[in-house]
Design a protein around this nucleic acid. Structure first.
Ligand SMILES: [Mn+2]
Ligand SMILES: [Mn+2]
Ligand SMILES: [Zn+2]
Ligand SMILES: [Zn+2]
Lengths: 165, 165
DNA sequence: GGCTTGATGCAACAGAGTTGCATCAAGATG
DNA sequence: CATCTTGATGCAACTCTGTTGCATCAAGCC
């Protein structure tokens, strides 16, 4: 996806295309994984200075407009990826309990009979969240080699110090 | 379930049966819903004084021992209910976006083909989380009557002041 | 030029859970 | 009995992940 597509996506979602929003869209459009706000913030900052509040507001906006979707993981940080309309599918995720990475799966429809659900529950169904919890291949290998900390490399918590936007 | 059963469950789970743990088990054994720690704390406190840290430690212990299971909702508080071994089934949940209540569903097996998942993912699958998001019947009715706040009644946040255990 | 509007920044705050250390009771040991 | 150890609990302070209020700034309009 190039810059042109990003702007088109924002417009289609009814969102004013500012520089930061384009950068966030660019990160989300990677599409491999659902990312926590902290990771998105780091990636966007490789391009330009951004305040974390701005990012949170953009993510909320994107979710409201269907551009992004927000998913809960086993830890306390929500993960964001492109919404169904822009990723081309409603999909579940595979969450690694060791490294915290959350991979986007091909689709949810094969796994869950949503229609049957709507009928069987006395509830207006808005969405279905499917998450597979386990240990990813990278972490399994790392564990076999004797490591104890999973297959993570990044770490570095996003800070809050003045002048850091 | 009476007190006798509670103690038996704790023993079966390999957990020392203290007064607080029995009370927590009692609350979880209700079985209708998965409850946030705050709700559990309030209910246990109707019986005896307890510190919130104690509750969190008990919940962690219960989850480790399989007595309870921990589920993520659309908000930032985890919900706890009896684990599969003690509730008699692995099950998903229905989360109401209005009132935040999370109902335990009959079973997950009918909805998700877990075996197929294990095969298709390069991952050691530990668990599957299925959550239906929507608006519960009570909230739908409340909304039709013109209310704007969902079908909740409780509210009251659990405090942290000294002398409150 | 003045006015409004929307996006962004900054500081302080909030909720949910954690950590470290103190205390206390029940057993185990002598 | 005196003492030692162990596990459960309490309390204060802390972390992490967002949120809220208010200030600023730029762009468009009159
Ligand atoms: Mn995804
Ligand atoms: Mn349940
Ligand atoms: Zn992993
Ligand atoms: Zn409801």
């Amino acid at each position: 996806m190039d810059g042109k597509d990003m702007a088109a996506m924002l417009e289609e979602a009814g969102v004013e295309p500012t520089a930061v929003r384009l950068a966030v869209t660019h990160v989300l459009a990677d599409g491999e994984r659902a990312l926590p706000a902290g990771d998105i913030l780091r990636k966007v900052r490789e391009t330009m200075p951004v305040n974390k509040v701005t990012l949170y507001r953009i993510l909320d906006l994107f979710v409201r407009q269907g551009l992004a979707s927000r998913h809960s993981s086993g830890d306390r940080a929500f993960r964001y990826c492109l919404g169904p309309r822009f990723s081309g599918r409603a999909h579940g995720h595979a969450y690694c309990l060791r490294c915290g990475r959350m991979a986007c799966l091909p689709a949810t429809r094969d796994l869950v009979d949503v229609a049957a659900l709507g009928r069987s529950l006395d509830m207006d169904v808005v969405g279905v969240e499917v998450r597979i919890d386990g240990v990813c291949a990278a972490c399994r290998l790392a564990a076999e080699k004797g490591g104890t900390g999973g297959a993570v490399e990044d770490g570095a918590v996003v800070d809050d110090a003045p002048g850091k936007n």
